[in-house]
Simulated scan of single mutants.
Amino acid sequence: MKKHTLALAIASSVLASAAGAGQVAEMNGVKYSVGGYIKAEGVFNRPDADAANGVTNTFDATARQSRLNFKTEREVDGHKISTFIEGDFYGGYFNSATYNWRLRHAYMQIDKVTLGQTWNGAFFATAPMDAAQINFWGPGLGTISGNGGTVRSNLVMHYTSGPIRISLQDPVNTGAGFPDMVAAYTQRFEGGSGFTVAAVGRDVAQGDGSNNDRENSVFGGGASFAGKLGLGDVTLYGSAYTGKGLGVFSGFGVNGAYGGPKNSDAQDGELVQQTGYTAAVAYKFDTKTTATIRMAHIGVDDTADSELNAMNANVIYNYTKGLDLGIEFRKQDVDTLNNTSTLPNLRPKGKQLEVMAIYKF
């Protein structure tokens, strides 16, 4: 089984990563590979009484997170060229009755340059150093990559040279005069330890309800640190970030707003500072079983002193090669992905319990 380089880079986030692709053919110097996974999941939702939209206890089960990918590799005149396309079955948005194909990744990689739709620079600055989570809608909370709506840019260019990654990506603010930018430095050590420091900059709309205000925008940005320390069977994880204009990446902003299509980074025409951190520990019981607990916090310096606290605890068991079974308990004290009738119970204020089986091929 041959892993794709981008998948390897985010292997520590386990279920959030693209699965490896296995080679199936080679023609005219081009290697063709396919991969993906099948995931079956069931989620018990137990929202708090004051959760958004008055949602109540439910049990939701689906296999639509399952995905397929296709990869090519070749060498031309001394240059390594690869392509990667991947999709899942959330093309009907979140309507449980629609399972259309959805494009997740479509990019080319030529030597040190990656160009196309794929993970943004904020994701690469944190996910490889984050603890494993089962929740498809939750990974990254507490970091600058907690917003799944912006974690894959429509178009991003990465330039990687050794430990340095420079990313220019389609701006979240549609009225921005330049791309969103991330510069990161990663250092890895033996035993699974490592860290990444990153700087983020973007053109942020100052209006409180729009991301396309061309006349009233200002440069915002911040800094992030994420790292992990391998101590034999125990791995410690930690991250912290701070800055202005980062709510659309973190997934949490002014007045507890979800950092999606609307600006969650400004109040009264001024950008608002926010700070987040995570801490986690994973314990490997044996070659097949690993348990993880992760805590996250985000604080926003708005008038309401908005803050989010979240916790995940899971056990993942490798039943056999490629097949993992898992269970995860999680809770958070603010609604994020539960703010409209089309997003019920994805990340509600309250508790969830998920059981899952995933087979990666």
Rank of each mutant, 00 (worst) to 15 (best):
E190H: 03
G222W: 05
I164R: 06
G194I: 01
F189K: 00
N154I: 13
D170L: 02
A223Q: 08
G192F: 00
N154H: 14
V182P: 01
L231Q: 13
D170S: 14
S210C: 03
D213M: 10
T196V: 12
Y237R: 04
T242I: 07
T160V: 15
S210G: 11
S193R: 02
G201D: 10
L231R: 09
V172W: 11
V234W: 11
K244I: 10
G221I: 02
G201Y: 13
E190Y: 07
L236H: 03
A223K: 11
D170I: 00
T174A: 09
G232W: 11
Y237N: 05
Q187L: 10
S193I: 04
F225T: 09
G191N: 07
A199H: 11
L246N: 00
G221H: 10
D180G: 05
G162M: 01
D208L: 00
T196H: 10
Q206R: 14
A183I: 15
S239F: 04
D203V: 03
G162V: 05
V200A: 06
G162Q: 01
N211E: 11
T196R: 02
A199W: 11
P171F: 14
A205Y: 01
S161C: 07
N212L: 00
G227T: 02
Q187G: 10
T242M: 14
H158L: 08
G227I: 01
D180Y: 08
V182A: 08
R202M: 07
A226I: 06
P163K: 12
E190Q: 14
D180A: 12
T235A: 03
S153M: 07
A240P: 09
G222T: 12
V182C: 07
I164W: 12
G192M: 02
F195N: 04
K244Y: 02
M157N: 05
S224K: 05
A223T: 13
A240F: 15
A205C: 08
L231A: 13
A226C: 10
G194C: 02
G177W: 07
P171T: 06
D203Y: 04
L168T: 12
S217R: 15
A199S: 03
V156T: 15
S193W: 07
I164P: 00
S153D: 14
